[in-house]
């Protein structure tokens, strides 16, 4: 179990990252807050020794994605929400751009591979490690996500 100081530092340092990953996966503020708190509790209770801050950040992103997936799996049976509802996400800022809206409409596996390289700056091998996927699969997902976004945004393409 980590110290309260270590937990408070992690919350201060990685709160925005964890929140963004939550927003990319979840549909409302309540779920986002649940996962947000769960992730930092897991961090507090984990005994994983991090080599550096990058390692720590990657660990938090992976734990957040897994927690979101778990929640969505349980939601799928009892509270499935249509794509239209996704637009009404309370977690997404009212001023969000068309690009963000478009990304949020992508299937989950494409959302991750858009966010991780284009916002967090991870390389394909790093994304592969975080998501537990083959590097080639990551490249394929990135390519398909770019094509889908290009089509949706009318020619505007994400540059690598």
């Amino acid at each position: 179990m980590r110290s309260e100081q270590a937990v408070n530092r992690a919350i201060e340092q990685y709160a925005d990252t964890v929140k963004r990953v939550c927003v990319l996966h979840l549909k409302n503020d309540a779920d986002t807050e649940d996962i947000f708190q769960t992730v930092f509790l897991k961090y507090a209770l984990s005994s994983t020794a991090f080599e550096n801050e990058e390692h720590e950040k990657a660990w938090l992103i992976r734990v957040t994605i897994n927690a979101c997936k778990d929640l969505l799996k349980s939601f799928f049976r009892s509270r499935m929400v249509s794509l239209e509802d996704v637009r009404e996400r309370a977690a997404v800022p009212q001023t969000s751009s068309e690009v963000l809206e478009t990304v949020l409409r992508l299937p989950e596996k494409y959302r991750q591979v858009v966010y991780l390289p284009y916002y967090e700056g991870y390389t394909a091998p790093e994304i592969g490690r975080i998501l537990g996927k083959n590097v080639n699969s990551v490249y394929t997902l990135i390519t398909r996500a770019r094509q889908m976004l290009k089509q949706a945004l009318g020619g505007e393409e994400f540059a690598t």
Binding site: I11, A15, V18, R20, L41, A44, L100
Partner: peptide, 26 residues
């Protein structure tokens, strides 16, 4: 990476109240 995409994601922040509730929860 389009500027608009980064700008949109930059708007997503964990507000202080959420952090405080999380600290208490943890």
């Amino acid at each position: 990476m389009p500027h608009e995409w980064k700008e949109a994601l930059d708007q997503i922040h964990a507000d202080e109240a959420l952090k405080q509730r999380t600290r208490q929860f943890v």
